[in-house]
Design a protein around this nucleic acid. Structure first.
Lengths: 211, 211, 211, 211
DNA sequence: AATGAATGAGTTTTCATTCAT
DNA sequence: TATGAATGAAAACTCATTCAT
């Protein structure tokens, strides 16, 4: 009754991750189905058994990507009580991830570009926004918690939203440059500088400098 | 010294700018020679009279782009004596440019992506690095000038390099997000927040806040 | 003599009829094995358990089709004693069939086309010819019977063959046009006109008009 | 200023006629662009210089076909004063055309089939209907002229429309069968039988038979 | 010098068929 | 026996590039 047993979901994921690597490296339009098939060790036709079109493969891969990122982010902030330390740790972990797997960041680049081309591409837009939103919320919560615990100034409560935006933009600018010119600068130092200035401006007490 | 040479260069530029628009909107691989020819009002074959290949057209267009950006940057910082004001003004002008012509920023996206694909593509890498370097130098100089004039703390001298890096990364993260989600946040406010925090940390005297 | 053999034939028929519908609607080459399998509620692989190839499925389906048509024809002419009335009735029934199930006529179209492509395709040719032959024979017999009974002129005996050919061609032209442009004309009226003229020319006695 | 000089319209026609042969022989879906290109002696890509898609090639070919047919029809009926003779001549010429170039009739088959598949395919439907309409009009006019000249009975005036429909259907049935089974019957004799019966029924005076 | 005609390699996608379970 | 997974050949179509005029 039952034919060759294959975990379709597992195989979709397997192909999806291979595709992700290609998208990261070459972008969407320059990645070809047959090369992905080849890299995934399946026939060209098999691709279409698992994804009805290239577009669907892209969507699925991105979902995979976002899931992966969000899980990583969630695990990074778990278990560290002090929100200040947690924030610093969070940034450092993100930077480690960038350093360890710079190509994966290339997917973001490809997504950003697709967003520019098809401005009404709502599926991808939603995906991206969701991802950024959850990152911002994580940062926002850390700021608020810091204020609640007296670690940050009360005024930081109003700026929390803005700080979160700011920080995300900074992080994304950082990997962008790291991608373009890996040896030009010290990511960790940059992140520390940024945080030092941030904490300096929201830590209570005159002239207190965090380290 | 025949006048033809001038014409030739002029036409190369003309085609180059048209190409730039396409690259910004669709990226390199999804922009086709014939569509660019069409938009530029020349024949398909003519493209190859002026550029030996698509690759060369890309290179030339990027040179054009970088030149344009650098000229703009240079003009922005000219004529404003106070380096603090000049810095704020500089950032605001950049943001205006992003707001007015978001597509042009798309070229950067395309370039970044190309850098990821061909990691040994030294021609483009050099171009990009040069551009960023000149932007950083401009910022660096403003910081140093501010220290010299007593507007910034002496300690800022050592951090000047790092601040410049930091700021460029922040700016690029900003347009990246602006491109992806134009209505999500207030670019100007974000820039001000960033500068406020920066100036707060490098302005002499206790609790002095710049505005 | 195992019961399996019956099942097998039954299932072949079941799949064959589903295939027939597809062939009628899309033609042979545009009908796909997997869509037929799907519509028949069996697996793709199962198709090849019952038919060694698409070609064989086509052959079998056509046999089924011809059988069906011939049974219908036989039942239409059964039980009506007057050959004139029987002839008129026959034509009307055929027209009813065309009106009720125009798609089935599409199979004929597909077969005709296949015959044009593979001119040496004797299997299908024989099938078709047999079908038309039996229809012609039925008409021929009615004419002869009419002559024998004095309902038609004796001269009709020599033309009987030709009349049969003529009538079949007319019928097939009729459904062809009905298929192409269903609302353009009144099939029943056309058939009556044709028969009136035919009967007028073969009915004995001056100016006698059949109705 | 001007490049390789090619009469685009001429080349479109040239390719169109080659395509027509393929469509006649294999139908639309089983005819491939590359095989047509090959037969036309041009490269695959060239096809798309002249036709934006297979669909457009089909449309163009059909236009060509209809034009051709209509011109032939027009020339056949020109210059013969007696409408009765003209009608007979017309039918004979059509039959000659069928005999001489049976494959071309295959195009009609393909069109009919396409009409069955995509019932809302208005472009082709319109083309077909127009062609049949003009054929019917030609026949209708001959009948009316015959009535006016006293060659046909006055009652034929009312039936003229119906006779035209009837005759077209008969003709199309005829070639359909001729295509399917070229040697089975004598097209000319069939046509004569049909016309004899028709003229018998609409010629004035008792028992008068046309020859 | 300028151009469009020509093209084949390469892209996405479909499909008849085979095969392991 | 029944099935769906797997696949390569082939289809429609795109595009950078060459070349004749």
């Amino acid at each position: 009754m039952s034919p060759k047993i294959v975990d379709r979901n597992e195989k979709r994921k397997q192909i999806g991750f291979v595709a992700l690597k290609h998208f990261a490296k070459y972008g969407f339009s320059a990645s070809s189905m047959s090369r992905i098939a080849n890299a995934a060790g399946v026939g060209k036709g098999t691709m279409y058994e698992y994804f009805s079109s290239k577009e669907e493969l892209i969507n699925f891969s991105l979902t995979l990507y976002v899931e992966q990122i969000e899980q990583k982010v969630a695990s990074l902030i778990a278990g560290i009580p002090n929100p200040k330390t947690r924030l610093r740790n969070y940034l450092h972990e993100v930077i480690q991830a960038i350093k360890n797997d710079p190509y994966t960041m290339g997917v973001l680049l490809a997504v950003f570009k697709k967003l520019v081309s098809d401005s009404q591409d709502t599926e991808h837009t939603a995906l991206l926004r969701g991802m950024f939103q959850s990152a911002r919320t994580a940062i926002y919560n850390m700021i608020i918690e810091g204020v609640d615990k007296g670690i940050f100034r009360p005024e930081a409560r109003q700026s929390a939203q803005s700080i979160a935006f700011n920080m995300i933009a900074f992080i994304d600018g950082l990997w962008l440059h790291a991608l373009a010119d890996p040896r030009a600068f010290d990511l960790t130092a940059q992140a520390n500088d940024y945080l030092d200035r941030l904490f300096y401006s929201i830590t209570p007490g005159p002239k207190q400098i965090d380290n």
